[in-house]
Amino acid sequence: MPDIETEAPAIFRGMLRDVVACSDYAEVCQLLGLVPAGPDVDEIEHYQSHVRIEEFLPVAAEALSHADVAATVLYRLTRMGECEEEGDERSQAMFHFVTRTACTAVIAHLLHKGILEIGDES
């Protein structure tokens, strides 16, 4: 388990890198009020993000299909007792986007740290 006080900022930046397009990263950091890393650290973090996403690709289809199921479960849980309304498609799409994004970032980080390993199904 990460030492939240020392590792949280780096984990946050790494996950942000993994979910925001490279071309938008600096602007998003500015909008969030984050102090940007220096050029050398920025280059390393950018590279590491690409490595993490590459490591995630072999399990992406399976992970994202499970994320979609989780999104549907969470969406329905948050809507219990409410009538279905017109325009719910946008809310459902947001649940799917957020869940897929979170699953991708978490799994990519855990794979990269060696906490998770891709097993042989044979």
Score class of each variant (00 low, 15 high):
residue 2 P to W: 12
residue 2 P to V: 15
residue 6 T to K: 11
residue 6 T to N: 09
residue 7 E to H: 08
residue 7 E to R: 04
residue 8 A to T: 06
residue 9 P to Q: 06
residue 9 P to L: 03
residue 10 A to E: 13
residue 10 A to F: 12
residue 10 A to T: 08
residue 11 I to T: 05
residue 11 I to M: 07
residue 12 F to P: 03
residue 14 G to D: 09
residue 15 M to H: 03
residue 15 M to K: 05
residue 16 L to M: 06
residue 20 V to M: 03
residue 21 A to M: 09
residue 22 C to T: 13
residue 23 S to W: 07
residue 24 D to R: 11
residue 24 D to M: 14
residue 24 D to L: 04
residue 25 Y to G: 01
residue 26 A to V: 10
residue 29 C to Y: 00
residue 29 C to I: 03
residue 30 Q to R: 14
residue 31 L to P: 01
residue 32 L to T: 04
residue 33 G to Y: 04
residue 34 L to S: 03
residue 34 L to Y: 02
residue 35 V to H: 07
residue 36 P to T: 06
residue 37 A to K: 03
residue 37 A to S: 12
residue 37 A to D: 12
residue 38 G to P: 04
residue 38 G to R: 02
residue 39 P to T: 06
residue 39 P to D: 12
residue 40 D to N: 05
residue 40 D to I: 10
residue 41 V to T: 10
residue 41 V to C: 02
residue 41 V to N: 05
residue 42 D to G: 04
residue 43 E to H: 09
residue 43 E to M: 05
residue 45 E to I: 00
residue 45 E to Q: 09
residue 46 H to Q: 15
residue 48 Q to V: 11
residue 49 S to H: 02
residue 50 H to F: 06
residue 52 R to F: 03
residue 54 E to V: 04
residue 55 E to I: 05
residue 56 F to Y: 11
residue 57 L to I: 07
residue 57 L to K: 12
residue 57 L to D: 07
residue 57 L to H: 08
residue 57 L to T: 11
residue 58 P to T: 06
residue 60 A to M: 07
residue 61 A to T: 09
residue 62 E to A: 13
residue 62 E to F: 06
residue 62 E to K: 12
residue 63 A to T: 09
residue 63 A to W: 03
residue 65 S to Q: 15
residue 68 D to T: 14
residue 70 A to Q: 09
residue 71 A to G: 05
residue 71 A to N: 03
residue 72 T to G: 08
residue 73 V to D: 12
residue 73 V to P: 01
residue 74 L to R: 13
residue 74 L to T: 08
residue 74 L to K: 08
residue 75 Y to H: 12
residue 76 R to D: 11
residue 76 R to T: 13
residue 76 R to F: 07
residue 78 T to Q: 11
residue 79 R to S: 11
residue 80 M to E: 14
residue 81 G to D: 03
residue 81 G to S: 04
residue 81 G to F: 02
residue 81 G to N: 04
residue 82 E to I: 00
residue 82 E to H: 13
residue 82 E to K: 08
residue 83 C to F: 12
residue 84 E to F: 07
residue 85 E to S: 08
residue 85 E to A: 11
residue 85 E to N: 06
residue 86 E to P: 03
residue 88 D to K: 05
residue 88 D to T: 07
residue 88 D to H: 07
residue 90 R to S: 14
residue 90 R to N: 10
residue 93 A to G: 04
residue 93 A to T: 15
residue 93 A to P: 03
residue 94 M to N: 12
residue 94 M to V: 13
residue 95 F to S: 02
residue 96 H to V: 06
residue 96 H to Y: 05
residue 98 V to F: 06
residue 99 T to Y: 02
residue 100 R to S: 15
residue 100 R to E: 11
residue 100 R to V: 02
residue 105 A to K: 00
residue 105 A to T: 00
residue 108 A to Q: 00
residue 108 A to T: 00
residue 110 L to F: 06
residue 112 H to A: 15
residue 113 K to G: 10
residue 113 K to P: 00
residue 114 G to W: 01
residue 114 G to H: 03
residue 115 I to Q: 11
residue 115 I to H: 07
residue 115 I to S: 11
residue 115 I to M: 08
residue 116 L to M: 06
residue 119 G to H: 12
residue 121 E to K: 15
residue 122 S to I: 10
